[in-house]
Design a binder for these strands. Structure first.
Lengths: 243, 243
DNA sequence: GCTAAAAGTTAGGCTGTACTAACTAGTTGA
DNA sequence: TCAACTAGTTAGTACAGCCTAACTTTTAGC
């Protein structure tokens, strides 16, 4: 009897335990708005593979809950509370990805899908333990920055391979994480975070981009190149970890 | 239009991807029926903390899906397919519990709650990797047997501490996993899987049971004792692992 | 400045899972 | 044998999320 009394389910302060779909909306809105900007209904719908009408409905409910600011016909913006929730989910997702890759040997093209489900089920507690177990990495396996426990995140904008100047050495810092086939292809080409590359040539009208990766020379299309982000090569930055 | 058509959701062969509530029902029915017996509506309702009416409804749908055999007013029994699904979930749950405890240092009173959510999100792939990472244990941290990948499980029935003969040395093999406070209390008393115990005395009318654990002598109530399962002490069995 | 296209919304429906209230079937004890 | 209790069911409702179809608002090009 007195033992049962002790079962207090300590809720982490404000958190009302968002549903999986809600977390997905917030994540999408955050990613579209890059943290601070606005997101259009259609863009949210496309990213979540939902009908725009569904987004209209959900968005109104989320606004009622104070998670986002919404003006009819004019897109949405996360509130501070919505932003915090989005970053919490993003942290979960990326820590889980990193953990799966580093601790369980998951191939980097499969971590995203698994994390997509686990991020809604794992507690913050568990995620923190995972982070500690792999040495609190700053980025996930695709180079995306991992938000800290209290919502700080590196929002540096990087230049994609598609818009790079020719002849300047760069460091690959991040690649898009959603398409497994693309990730396998990039890994084959050694275009992975931490690699030094130089754009050698770019053909006009959507033509191929030629680049040097290590001692190899490869050609990729602009659609793929747009999914590879790069940073300047500096003395201190190297090896696939930023910080 | 044509883009929407492409949304093919490649289902993994037979598995229709059960929802979390469905998996919970199957698990509950399996546990109540000990694998083969029947489960009463009210018992399912109580275990899942739902209204009996809700169970009636769900049970009919599960019967339609071929997961269980159902005769109105006479309880339900898992079909072979239902049993397989239940064991798949049970395996997930217990491997996750074991992994959390062994690989991430989770305290044994918290693994159950976390696993309760993760079991619905983790892929079989991930669960297998976790199992390998901790050496394919046969039991979870509370001593519950872990079903194998192909649905085999140790269904040995053990004698609870409440119904034990006096003076006979026994081995604790399993404790109930759901109540964190109870688990902390048991750990305090060193009543954990693998421990040798002897019942020294039992008072009638629900009175305390006195037992020797190591060099200590302790007294517990029959309600608690019923949640501790024991096996005979043999030469080969020892140390908290069965098999 | 107007009109057509694009973007977004509302209306109405469906499914899954839960609830309460009211009813029925099965069981048990006098 | 049947009344009363227990167990289980049906009926009707709700809510979250999704959908399509039809409508409205905004925007962009002339």
């Amino acid at each position: 009897m007195s033992a049962a009394r002790e079962h207090v389910t300590t809720k982490p302060a404000s958190a009302e335990a968002l549903t999986a779909p809600v977390e997905d909306y917030l994540k999408a809105i955050y990613t579209i708005g890059k943290g601070t900007g606005a997101a259009a209904t259609n863009e949210i719908a496309q990213r979540l593979a939902l009908a725009p009408a569904s987004v209209s409905g959900m968005v109104r409910r989320l606004a009622d809950q104070g998670l986002l600011a919404y003006e009819r016909y004019h897109g949405v913006k996360l509130t501070e509370s919505g932003r915090r929730a989005a970053l919490r989910t993003l942290r979960r997702h990326r820590v889980i990805e990193a953990y799966l890759a580093q601790a369980l040997g998951y191939p980097w093209d499969r971590v995203h899908e698994e994390a997509e489900r686990l991020e809604h089920a794992a507690s913050d507690q568990l995620v923190d333990r995972m982070a500690v177990a792999i040495g609190e990495p700053k980025v996930d396996p695709h180079g995306a920055p991992i938000p800290t426990h209290d919502g700080a995140v590196d929002e540096t904008e990087y230049t994609s391979l598609a818009e790079l100047a020719i002849g300047v050495p760069r460091l690959v810092v991040r690649v898009a994480d959603e398409d497994p086939a693309m990730l396998r292809y990039l890994a084959e080409l050694s275009v992975v975070p931490g690699k030094r590359i130089i754009v050698k040539a770019r053909e006009p009208y959507g033509g191929p981009i030629t680049l040097a990766v290590g001692r190899q020379e490869i050609s990729i299309g602009p659609a793929l190149a747009a999914h590879v982000l790069t940073a300047p090569v500096t003395g201190k930055a190297s090896g696939g970890r930023r910080g």
